[in-house]
Computed example of a mutant assay.
Amino acid sequence: MKQLSEGLAKIDRSQLPGKFKVWCYQFTLYRRVMWPLKMSEIPSSTASKMDGKANSFIRKWLGLPRCLSSTGLFGRNILQLPLQSISLGYMQEKTRLVLELRESTDQTVRNANAKVPTGRKWNAKTEVDRAIGRLQHQEIVGRVQAGRAGLGWGEAPWFWSKASRKERKEMVVAEVTRTEEERYKIKAVSQGRQGSWTTWEGVANRNIRWADLWKIPQDAGVTGGNLKKATKELAEEAEKGSFWLWLRRKDKCWGKNT
């Protein structure tokens, strides 16, 4: 928790634009935090608190309202942002750890029956057993079609009995991820305005990539010299605003109202 707080504060103090701060968090701090969460005996409630703290900075950097729920940031919505949740990453890493201990090539490790404590709110071993049960049930049911797709449409699914050790790990992690995404969907349905997208029909899903975020100014028609000019003017206005606030810092009108 301390490492996350210090890292977020350092990124926030930098002079980078908001989307660059989010990129620094996602590809540096997030990955640095995941390893201790996997190997240490940290309960899921602590991971949820860390997720909430990181989400507040992400909303700030992206200019999003504080009332925006985590479903809008990390859920599989109509407009999917390229962000990863600490809570979901915690579940994925703990799931991998359970499978690594259970299906280790070392017989001593397998027979040790080591426990992976995750607190009372979420149990990794129970979730892994449920995911394996769902995968085995899917194999019994066989290949089915969903929606309006025709028979044989899409990629052939993996079956549990024919999968290798590595493929089984990927299948279980994907199943745990899908279960968490369903919880995001349920939460979105229960929301009024923020979850209104769940009732839309005929709208194609779009996944926003980091490359798309970098191209937002260019897609808006701001390119070349105009982009440099806009960046310069924005920096000058920010500098003027900061200087004006510094000059007015001792004015009585800035004090508390009595």
Rank of each mutant, 00 (worst) to 15 (best):
K2H: 09
V116A: 05
K19P: 08
K232M: 09
I78D: 13
L245S: 12
M39W: 07
L234P: 00
S104V: 12
W122K: 03
L245V: 05
K187W: 01
A174H: 10
V98E: 02
G224R: 15
K252W: 07
Q218V: 03
S44T: 06
A54W: 02
G202W: 11
I208C: 10
T126N: 07
G225P: 02
M34I: 14
R110M: 13
K185S: 09
R143G: 00
N205F: 01
L213S: 05
I78S: 14
W61V: 04
W246E: 08
S196R: 15
S69Y: 02
V172N: 06
K240R: 13
G18S: 10
E236L: 06
R143D: 00
G154Y: 11
T179E: 11
I140A: 06
K187R: 13
G18F: 11
E201N: 15
V172S: 04
E175W: 01
E41L: 03
T231E: 14
S196M: 15
I11V: 10
S161E: 14
T199N: 15
L64Y: 09
W200H: 15
K228Q: 11
R102E: 10
W254Q: 12
V33N: 03
C24M: 07
R130M: 03
P217D: 06
V144I: 12
V98P: 01
S85K: 02
G195K: 14
N113K: 10
L64S: 03
C253S: 13
F159V: 05
W214Y: 14
W61Y: 08
L97T: 10
L37M: 14
Q3Y: 10
L83N: 04
A146Y: 09
L88F: 00
P82C: 03
A47W: 01
L79I: 08
K256C: 12
G202Q: 14
I58H: 02
E41I: 09
K169Q: 15
R193A: 11
M1R: 07
W35H: 14
R168K: 15
M50F: 06
A211T: 11
A211K: 12
Q136C: 03
A47L: 03
E6K: 14
D51L: 01
P117W: 02
M91G: 01
R13C: 05
T177N: 04
W254R: 12
R148W: 08
T258M: 09
W158Q: 11
E167C: 06
K166H: 12
G224W: 11
R249H: 08
R76W: 05
A9E: 11
M50Q: 03
E155W: 06
S56R: 10
E103R: 15
S85Q: 01
S161Q: 14
K121N: 05
